[in-house]
């Protein structure tokens, strides 16, 4: 085991897959000479050369579309969006082409592309740079969506994503890039679509993913210490495919659920989850399902106020206590 940052874990996954499969290429703005806007791709250009690691102009529709096209021929592009927020510039390529081409060709074509980059608030970069589009992406059959919360998960899931034969959208987090965690030295893969119980408990299940997993673990610790409440934290890890079975098993154990997501509430991932939980485990519930989201407005810039707009341990704690009343 080694202690790696989330950033290093992603980088190691990229390096290992570049080494393993000559069809893998890494492209995006500033990924090469500049070593990545967030230094995720540091050293990759040096190690693998410009044929495998390429800097693109600021043309998201163009280069993302190019990656999708190349994937149809069996190239396996791992495209970096400097921020997932810029996906909107390439929306047509992502949704009409990557998501639909297999279906429209009657299954003749597949797109083994990965698009990765950070998607989060919390760094005061304002409304245009703080989008969390996992719900919007996952609303399109044909695509897979992964949101890892730890270095271990990030590495194992990214390697699986690169080997996956469908388009996989991999949403990282700039706030987590510096976070450290244990990562095995030997190779491992984590299958897409497998949730992970990050903390076991018996009174309440928090279902979450991405950075709110870390915040929920902090809240769970406070709830245990200060309120003698035992919280189970289920990390979805993958939004689509969705491991609803792990969620339901936890609900059947604790009988109370709080969904926490760094998303606006309307048609968010939590909306789909709460529907499925009540449909399949209604009789197991002792309380209405709770939900904690980002406050429903574009991302505010003001640093101290943005903290209050997003999920945070205190907001999670309050929402949990309200459910247990």
């Amino acid at each position: 085991m080694s202690q790696l940052t989330y950033r290093e874990a992603v980088r190691h996954a990229l390096a290992e897959e570049l080494t393993r499969d000559p069809n893998v290429v890494v492209m995006g703005e500033e990924v090469g000479q500049f070593q990545g806007a967030y230094k995720v791709t540091q050293g990759l250009l040096e190690k693998f050369g410009p044929k495998r690691v390429a800097d693109t102009p600021i043309s998201e529709a163009g280069f993302i579309g190019m990656g999708i096209g190349a994937s149809m021929l069996g190239v396996r592009p791992v495209m970096e969006l400097m921020f997932w927020s810029f996906y909107s510039v390439a929306f047509d390529q992502i949704l009409n082409n990557a998501a639909n081409v297999r279906y429209m060709s009657g299954g003749q074509i597949n797109c083994p592309i990965v698009i990765r980059g950070p998607a989060n608030g919390g760094t005061n970069v304002g409304a245009t740079h703080s989008h969390t589009p996992e719900n919007i992406l996952a609303a399109h059959p044909g695509v897979k969506v992964v949101v890892p919360s730890t270095p271990y998960d990030a590495k194992g899931l990214l390697k699986s994503a690169i080997r996956d034969n469908d388009p996989v959208f991999f949403l990282e987090n700039t706030v987590l890039y510096g976070e450290k965690g244990e990562v095995p030295d030997e190779e491992y893969l984590i299958p897409l679509g497998k949730a992970d119980v990050k903390r076991e408990g018996k009174d309440l299940t928090i279902v979450t993913y991405g950075r709110p997993v870390i915040q929920s673990l902090v809240a769970a610790e406070l709830l245990a210490k200060e309120h003698d409440i035992s919280v189970e934290v289920v990390d979805l890890r993958t939004i689509r495919p969705l491991d609803i079975d792990t969620v339901l098993a936890s609900v059947r154990k604790t009988h109370r659920v709080l969904v926490v997501e760094e998303q606006k509430p309307f048609c968010g991932v939590g909306a789909q989850l709460t529907y499925m939980i009540q449909a399949e485990a209604f009789d197991d519930l002792d309380a209405p399902i709770g939900r904690l989201c980002t406050i429903d407005a574009p991302a505010i810039y003001s640093p101290p106020v943005e903290v209050e707009q997003l999920p945070n341990p205190q907001r999670i704690l309050k929402a949990a206590l309200a459910l247990l009343d």
């Binding site: 970069v125 304002g126 409304a127 574009p298 505010i300 810039y301 106020v305």
Partner: peptide, 9 residues
Amino acid sequence: SKGKGGSMH
């Protein structure tokens, strides 16, 4: 911008 936009806005 009432603190809502920041440097870029």
